[in-house]
């Protein structure tokens, strides 16, 4: 029981290997995300892939929440549950359905092995990446960027949400560009579908 709890809460000694530092919540959520991602990629039926992709986004939102990134989790929740599934289904409604006997795609061995080699190569870099939540990680301990934002945001912008302050104030011009990109996406959809009006 205590062993399981230690695994669950990550309260083993700091020197324990990386695997032991992964808590039970992280491990189960990561397993869920990986399984749903694999099922989405391998599903034979497109509708099944769309449905499993919805489940994937559920796991991602919970994972973002666990890592205390509520803004990202909220975006994942709103976009994936509300928008992406609906738009994918609408697109799917314009296609014809082919009945399949098998649940999964047959795996193309050369492609799978290429992906496997890429995955192995990326795994080699894992040793140099700081542990999640480590106070020594450059992205956190950087006094000029992260710590500056965290300490100066309220004094300079008078809002409590640092993410929004970075988006709207410190990086406001970038956000303006992003908003214009969304706007241009709507126009591009009009052009691609040969329409002049949305409705």
């Amino acid at each position: 029981m205590t062993g399981a709890l230690a695994l669950a809460t990550g309260s083993l000694t700091p020197a324990s290997p990386v695997v032991a530092q992964v808590t039970a919540v992280e491990a189960s959520l990561l397993a869920f995300v990986v399984l749903t991602a694999l099922a989405t990629a391998l599903a034979r039926d497109v509708l099944a892939a769309v449905i499993v992709f919805g489940a994937y986004s559920l796991g991602m939102a919970a994972l973002y929440t666990f890592y205390r990134a509520p803004d990202v989790a909220l975006t994942e929740a709103a976009i994936s549950a509300g928008v992406t599934t609906v738009l994918l289904l609408l697109t799917l409604a314009k296609t014809t359905r082919i009945d399949h006997d098998s649940v999964f795609e047959s795996v193309n061995l050369p492609a799978a092995s290429a992906a496997g080699f890429l995955f192995a190569g990326l795994l080699l870099t894992m040793g140099d990446i700081p542990a999640i939540g480590s106070p020594d990680a450059p992205v956190w301990s950087n006094p000029d960027v992260t710590q500056w934002y965290l300490t100066e945001t309220y004094a300079q912008t008078h809002v409590e949400n640092t993410v929004m302050a970075v988006l709207a104030a410190f990086r406001g011009f970038d956000t303006f560009g992003e908003a214009i990109v969304v706007f241009a996406g709507g126009i591009a959809a009009l052009i691609v579908l040969h329409r002049e009006v949305f409705a």
Partner: peptide, 21 residues
């Protein structure tokens, strides 16, 4: 947190039905 992990394990179990049909 342990309870959340348990619920996630249950979600993995339910995933079987979502994938298999």
């Amino acid at each position: 947190l342990l309870a959340a992990a348990g619920f996630t394990v249950l979600a993995i179990g339910m995933l079987y039905r979502a994938v298999k049909g």
